[in-house]
C-alpha cells in the first residue's frame, strides 16, 4: 500500500461533511436496532399483544363501549402511542448513554460534525425505532380490533411529533445520566406513570372534574388523544391545543438538547 494515499487529504465542504455524518449516525443507529432486534423490536410486540389480550379481550368485553367505540378500538391507538413513546425515548437514551459510557461518543466529538447534526442523527434513530415499533404494534392491533385511520394527516403528524419529542427527551436524559440507574429513573418514575395516566385506557371525561383538570397538565394526554382522533375521529382534547403542546415541547426540548451539546455538559471536562 502506498502511504501517500493516506496523507493527501481532500477536505469536503462543511455542508457535505454534515450530510454524510448525519447519514452515518443514522445508518449506525439502524444497524444497531436491527442487530439487537430481540431487545428492540420483539419485546414491544409481545408486551402490547398481552395488553390487547388482557385489557382488550378479557376485561374490555365486560367494560362495553367507551366514547361510542368498543373498548378494544378505544385503547388500540393509546397502546400504539405508548409503544412509540417508550421505544423512541428508550432507543436514544440507551444508545447515547452507551456511547458515553464506552467513550465511543468521542469518535463524533473529535470530528468536524456540527452538534445539531449529532442531535438530528440520534433523534432520527429514535424516530426509526419508535415508528418501526409503532408499525409492528399497529399490525398486532389489527388482529384484535377493527380500527381504521379516519384522519391520516393527523395520525402521521401526531406520531411523528410524539416520537420526535421523546427522542429528544431521551437524549437529554442520556446527557445528564452518569450511570445506568440514571437512565432508567425517568422512564420508570415519570414516563410510565404519565403514559398510564394519559388516557390510554380510559377517557378523561370519566374522571371527576378535579382530576380532569389535573390530567390536563399531563402532556402525554394531548398526544394520545390527538392520535386517537386520527384513528377514531373523536377526542377528549382540542386538536389545536394538542398540536400546540407537542410543538412547544419539541421546540423547547430541542433547544435544551442543543444547548447541552454545545456546552459539552456530561461529555467534556
Amino acid at each position: 500500500m502506498s502511504t501517500e494515499t493516506l496523507t493527501t487529504a481532500a477536505m469536503p465542504s462543511q455542508a457535505r461533511t454534515n450530510w454524510v455524518a448525519y447519514k452515518t449516525i443514522l445508518r449506525r443507529e439502524i444497524i444497531r436496532i436491527l442487530r439487537i432486534w430481540t431487545q428492540t423490536l420483539l419485546p414491544p410486540a409481545i408486551t402490547m399483544t398481552l395488553y390487547f389480550v388482557i385489557f382488550g379481550s378479557l376485561i374490555g368485553g365486560r367494560i362495553g363501549e367507551m366514547d361510542g367505540h368498543s373498548y378494544m378500538d378505544f385503547i388500540a391507538p393509546g397502546i400504539i402511542m405508548m409503544s412509540v413513546i417508550t421505544n423512541a425515548y428508550g432507543n436514544v437514551v440507551s444508545s447515547f448513554f452507551s456511547a458515553k459510557y464506552q467513550r465511543h461518543i468521542e469518535e463524533i466529538l473529535i470530528a468536524p460534525v456540527s452538534n445539531w447534526v449529532v442531535l438530528a442523527g440520534y433523534i432520527s434513530g429514535g424516530l426509526f425505532r419508535g415508528l418501526a415499533v409503532g408499525a409492528i404494534v399497529t399490525v398486532v392491533a389489527l388482529f384484535f380490533s377493527d380500527i381504521h385511520i379516519a384522519h391520516p394527516f393527523i395520525t402521521i403528524t401526531t406520531v411523528l411529533l410524539t416520537a420526535l419529542l421523546f427522542s429528544i427527551g431521551g437524549l437529554i436524559n442520556a446527557i445528564f445520566a452518569r450511570s445506568f440507574d440514571d437512565v432508567s429513573i425517568v422512564p420508570t418514575f415519570i414516563l410510565t406513570p404519565l403514559t398510564y395516566l394519559g388516557g390510554v385506557f380510559y377517557s378523561v371525561s370519566l374522571l371527576p372534574e378535579l382530576w380532569q383538570n389535573v390530567s390536563l397538565a399531563n402532556p402525554i394526554l394531548y398526544m394520545v388523544n390527538a392520535f386517537r382522533y386520527g384513528f377514531l375521529g373523536s377526542s377528549d382534547i382540542s386538536l389545536g391545543i394538542a398540536y400546540s403542546v407537542m410543538l412547544a415541547f419539541s421546540i423547547g426540548f430541542g433547544a435544551l438538547a442543543l444547548y447541552l451539546l454545545n456546552s459539552g455538559r456530561g461529555l467534556k471536562s
Binding site: 477536505m11 469536503p12 465542504s13 454524510v20 455524518a21 452515518t24 449506525r28 468536524p112
Partner: peptide, 15 residues
C-alpha cells in the same frame, strides 16, 4: 470495518 468507515463518515467521507 464498521468502526473505521463510520469514523470516515463523521469526517464527510462517503461510504
Amino acid at each position: 470495518l464498521q468502526i473505521v468507515t463510520q469514523q470516515a463518515g463523521y469526517y464527510g467521507v462517503p461510504y
